[in-house]
Design a protein around this nucleic acid. Structure first.
Length: 207
DNA sequence: ATCCCGAGGG
DNA sequence: CCCTCTGGAT
């Protein structure tokens, strides 16, 4: 457990008390779909296409038997829409065939699905099943390195480092807070270090 | 390391 | 124009 990591998270708790998953969903399956779609795309854009997608294909069985062209048409505004269409249709088929159309709630089972990696699996576990997990996306990786919480670029190692530094009950929301801060202040291109509430704890500015 | 892929920002 | 956006599979 790292005092500094906890101190950083304490400040983020005050700064973003309501940090949460901003993908719109009404079931674990919908969250899985939305998270698969969120790769290399903003959650705002995902939320623009999921209403029609969920309305037309509410359950895994519906999406499993969907026509490729119809799904592609809905997903077109997102990046990688062909690859994402393949992932959604195939993972839905696997849910029907191997899990009776239900959603598995273990990391191993989720990662076994096509298009689902550790990041996506941990988002579903944390936000649909209340199982703590570190979700290393572009923001969490970038901020963790800038803040000196890790020196690694490998997401699995970043995940391991953050798990060691933060108490388990904070894992899921601490990642939301890092993501909020990454979008609003510690942006990739031009971080606003002047306005940053973490500056005194950040190797770039403070100390 | 490369590919999949589109849109908005700087 | 290049970089970035809640990545994953080959």
């Amino acid at each position: 457990m790292s005092e500094r990591a906890v101190a950083i998270d304490d400040i983020l708790i005050e700064t973003y008390p309501d940090a949460h998953c901003e993908l719109d969903f009404a079931s674990p399956f919908q969250l899985l779909v939305a998270t698969v779609l969120s790769a290399q795309t903003t959650d705002v854009r995902v939320n623009q296409v999921t209403p029609e997608l969920f309305n037309r294909y509410p359950r895994p069985a519906d999406l499993a038997s969907a026509g490729r062209a119809d799904v592609e048409e809905i997903l077109r505004p997102l990046g990688f829409f062909r690859a994402k269409t393949t992932s959604l249709i195939e993972l839905s088929g696997r849910l029907v065939a191997e899990f009776s159309g239900d959603m598995p709630d273990s990391l191993d089972a989720l990662v076994s699905l096509p298009g689902v990696g550790r990041k996506t699996a941990n988002v579903v576990l944390g936000n649909a099943f209340g199982i703590p997990g570190i979700t290393v996306d572009t923001h969490v990786g970038r901020l963790s390195r800038r803040l000196g919480l890790t020196k690694n670029t490998d997401p699995v190692k970043v995940e391991r480092d953050l798990m060691a530094e933060l108490p388990k009950e904070r894992w899921t929301d601490a990642c939301h807070r890092l993501i909020f801060h990454g979008r609003r202040c510690c942006t990739a291109r031009k971080p606003d270090c002047e306005a940053c509430p973490l500056s005194e704890l950040c190797p770039r500015i403070g100390v």
